[in-house]
Design a protein around this nucleic acid. Structure first.
Lengths: 173, 173
DNA sequence: TACCACGGTTCAGTGAATGAACTAAGGTGA
DNA sequence: TCACCTTAGTTCATTCACTGAACCGTGGTA
């Protein structure tokens, strides 16, 4: 979203949520973080987002407790951004929005397939496994792989890595 | 969201979805439509949204097939905006986002309680009934009522009407 | 005839997004 | 030692969407 991020007078959890994650690019940053993207440069390469906007979004999400900024090496000092428990719970709305788009906005086939790591069953828009019936699966138990409708010719390393099947939240190689 | 609505190069259903429903105000318009708001003036009164933005959002949503514009009286000619099947399926992501906000951004208690009309059980973020176990309930089977955390002192007729328990999609009185 | 309700459109001003250029800290190779 | 590279930003002029107030048009109503 953007431009005046406050929906004053809306005593509604949805409005509060959108003030935080409804700005332009924010939800895509969160999706990438759930996919295992952690470094500034990787978000940048994969999203084609203006650097200034990325910096601002990451700072906002860290301050809100959705992402944690964590030092992963000292020489030179480098930080990575990792979803907190609060951030991991955004998995459900992110999935629901994406699945809605798959159903209604995709003329080609499925772009990404989500499956339950334990049984291999497909996962639906409520994060439940069609095969074993497990409901509301957390991202740690979900694997993504490209579907037949994915038409992704991007050659940056992040896009290439995301074309390999991998478990959600697992950091990119 | 807003400002340059296209996330070019993102071959992702989430990005496609956000191009449509991720602009600023759009998701709140959809929420209101699911709550039973149908008329231009009612959206306007309840959301405090600039008229020009509301007009543009309604037009976009109608063109995309999320809302249907429907004549409800001829003298004078008046139209209303009603969610299509496609729009009703946005219930799940809208609920998931709202419930995330209830859990993580609400210091007071629950603002709105969703329950299963058939059994009265509470509904969770995946639209499943905690009491009878029915999963992925459609909005027609869900009732909203104010929760203890709702601190809504708005006095416009729409806010007043929405403070009464009512079934989703049922038009306001 | 005057006025009102509803559903918009128009427009000047504001402020966020964009994208290119620049900065800074630190490592690497010759 | 010097030049150069990588990563992670910041700065800044430009563009463009949002804002809010004013205006418009249609069709009742008093």
């Amino acid at each position: 979203m953007a431009l005046g991020k406050n929906y004053d007078g809306q005593d509604c959890s949805l409005a509060r949520t959108l003030e935080l994650v409804g700005e332009r690019w924010t939800m895509l940053v969160i999706r990438d973080a759930l996919y295992g993207v952690r470094r500034y440069g990787d978000f940048l390469a994969h999203l084609d987002i203006p650097r200034a906007v990325l910096s601002q979004r990451l700072a906002t999400l860290v301050e809100a407790g959705v992402l944690e900024r964590r030092r992963y090496q000292d020489n030179p000092p480098r930080d990575e951004y990792v979803p907190t428990a609060m951030g991991r719970e955004l998995w459900l709305p992110v999935l629901a929005l994406g699945q809605w788009g798959e159903r209604h906005l995709s003329r080609r086939g499925t772009r990404r397939v989500f499956s339950h790591v334990e049984c291999g069953g497909r996962i639906d828009a409520t994060a439940s496994c069609a095969a074993c019936g497990a409901a509301h699966l957390p991202p740690e138990q979900v694997e993504v792989r490209p579907g037949p409708g994915l038409e992704d010719d991007r050659s940056d390393p992040v896009s290439v890595a995301l074309r390999e099947p991998h478990r959600l939240l697992d950091p990119l190689p």
